[in-house]
Amino acid sequence: MGSKIKEVDLGVSIGSLRLKNPVMTASGTFGYAREFEPYVNLHRLGAVVVKGISLEPRAGNPPPRIVETSCGMLNAIGLENVGVNRFISEKMEYLQVVNVPVVVNILGDTLEEYREIAERLADVKGVAAIEVNISCPNVKKGGVAFGTVPAMAAAVTAAVKQKSTVPVIVKLSPNVTDITLIARAVEDAGADSVSLINTLIGMAIDHRTRKPRLANVIGGLSGPAIKPVALRMVYQVAQAVSIPVIGIGGIETVEDVLEFMLAGATAIQIGTANFINPRASEEAVEGLAKYVAEQKLGSIREIIGAVVIP
């Protein structure tokens, strides 16, 4: 299997970042990568995206934080994380040794926080790119999510770009009326790439207790249930911008990966599927290699955006 993978060209580029294949892991579903060491040859992945990092450590929401729904799950983790300083001192060392590009997902309550985290990550060895989670509430603007207003999304992008020394990927929220407007706004503000989608906001109620199933009342929907929505949004955004699009949402198998790439994604991220099959990401890499060989493609790049609209 290993030799087969070397024969075919799976390489893709996200701005100045060259990936050996388009398969990445989605933030918040792959820990800090080390958790998957027993299951995955991490160096074979295109990149890993780590759990969202804030300036200060966050404890996250009270339990219950997760509930299963039809073909999916809702989560309200509340962005629990160790904070940027402990991330750099405790988690990066391992990732540097593994030899896999590390994309650091960042989040904040204010523009200043985003800027500050980007500054602390600048020049940290092993950080290949920053992914900006803009689905967070802007504390200074009454808690409206940055990602829902084009001007605010652009401002965060510009703030991070100003300090970052690596490509900046802006992760879009699907909880908007027109995602292409946000995508264009962040492209204009200098984003090197956009990734989408983050989770769709949802809710579950237990009719017997009459209570919400999540302590936070609402949470983010992920998994196979959201795939058609994600695929549609990737397709629309890929038409609207000229920077590379990273597709996310319900991807489990190589077939799913191919569909997102056909819709216009240059790379993809695997999220919830990691919980069910920790090897999902590596299996997708193997599947892509097989596909390129069987289809006798010059490279995987040939299928990006190649969906045939009759």
């Binding site: 918040g28 998957f36 997760i66 509930v67 919980f275």
Partner: peptide, 16 residues
């Protein structure tokens, strides 16, 4: 607790 992954990836399985 409720658990999505059982292996430290989802951070869903908390106890105070």
């Amino acid at each position: 607790t409720s658990m999505a992954c059982g292996m430290g990836a989802c951070l869903g399985c908390i106890v105070p």
